[in-house]
Design a protein around this nucleic acid. Structure first.
Lengths: 244, 244
DNA sequence: CGTGTTATTGACCAACATCAAACTTAGTGG
DNA sequence: CCACTAAGTTTGATGTTGGTCAATAACACG
């Protein structure tokens, strides 16, 4: 029983952003075996149809989950940041119904399902925390579904930026409204059900209106209040704990 | 310890469509206390912002989950049929981030969170079954997200009809390709991110092409093969067990 | 410096939305 | 059994958001 490593801390920090953990929970998480791996930009981590026997903890970089529909077009389903376990579901859903890919070079750590299952058996509080995590996942899908279905392009972009900032802040990866976000316009388009050309035009509008400043690598939110209202954003669906 | 009632059987049947239960699991489920309630068409069962202390088991009728976005437009997030527990998540997410409403008159049964939690503590196998259920829920959101983001209106309608049939069949509520589906075109539009007028035109195309026959009350799938390919439908994401 | 990726621009287009009216159907009460 | 009504469906005319295509500009990287 030793102090959790910084890599374990990433996971702990994430879980603490959504659920109350006690000292023993943290220690137990610290014992999880991690098989480290670096992946390069655009590599797939898991692919639709796979039946993985480990989960993937993201330590550094940005991952996304995505589906390719019949005619080859891509829909990005979620973005993931340090501390996330984007394929936690594979613990209970044998075969992947979507893929996980790296949008930037990433540092990952794989955790065997066996180890994860044993931990959850031991510690019901952690089982609850992880279950809650997957439920929040679903809540985010719902919000995106509402956005793609019923919000216009400007609202969608603004909403996405609000969400990304809120989530980064919740795990201590952004402390002010200026933070790295190296995601291309084409990727944003795939996440929002738009085309890259149109995303580009929307971004120009948002910049012209003084809501954001962005190059392809980082994002600066210039007016949080107006950005949230432009994006119809309300963080309730993220189900974050009040204080971290 | 007695034979589970037909109402309990609905729930058992649903869970068995996605997970292996043993005899004791079924018996334990049969002991769940059910507080029955009938709701009329268009009534809300739970509302965004509520913090319910019971879950809602649907026995008869059709429920939907939905969100209202900033400008008052509605996005339907999911349809639910007999055996579903659409707000199971409320067990771990205190405050509702969306509403649950009745699309038809419904028979419901409420199960106290307390009773549900006790059952899951007792029977890890059932905890796994319910967790899996919420994960499949999320898988369906993902599929809808991909549809609204990247499929055209014809594909979306066809896909929805394939999904509805597959789910009804999995729990024994449809045995052939002709089944009741009393959902209005306006509701379908709200589920698919379209307008009622456009849904109407798409339906006319699908009927003209001999894929379906439908009035507002029931749906007959005339050509399953062509409907699935028109809708780019692959049931993998429903994560059903091979045999019921 | 090339070279490849990403961002930007412009001209044009199509899918789907909007608006408004008419038609159908199911239910209700006389 | 027949108005009457309300909800849902269908139709037509027209509008707009966002898509498509194609070219150019700006970077980043080796």
């Amino acid at each position: 029983m030793s102090i959790p490593t910084p890599d374990h801390q990433r996971l702990i920090r994430k879980l603490k952003s959504i659920y109350r953990l006690d000292r023993e929970d943290e220690m137990a998480l610290g014992e999880l075996p991690l098989r480290h791996k670096a992946v390069e930009e655009n590599a797939d981590v898991v692919r639709e149809g796979d039946a993985p026997n480990e989960c993937c903890l993201l330590l550094e970089g940005i991952l996304c989950r995505y589906k390719i529909v019949g005619d080859g077009r891509r829909q990005i389903l979620s973005f993931h940041i340090g501390g996330d376990v984007p394929d936690l579901q594979s613990l209970h859903l044998d075969v992947m119904d979507h893929s996980v890919g790296a949008l930037t070079p990433c540092r990952l750590a794989f955790i065997p399902h066996e180890a994860m299952a044993a931990l959850l058996r031991e510690r019901p509080n952690l089982a609850a925390a992880f279950w809650r995590d997957t439920l929040i996942d679903a809540a985010v899908f719902r919000e995106w579904l509402a956005g793609v279905g019923r919000r216009n392009s400007h609202q969608r972009v603004a909403h996405l930026y609000c969400e990304v900032f809120s989530r980064l802040e919740a795990v201590g990866l952004a402390s002010n409204l200026n933070f790295p976000f190296p995601v291309t316009q084409a990727e944003i388009a795939d996440a929002l059900g738009l085309t890259p050309v149109h995303v580009n035009r929307v971004l120009q509008d948002l910049r012209r209106d003084g809501l954001i400043a962005s190059d392809g690598r980082s994002l600066r939110i210039l007016d949080w209040g107006r950005l949230t209202s432009a994006g119809d954003f309300d963080a309730t669906y993220l189900h974050l704990r009040q204080a971290a």
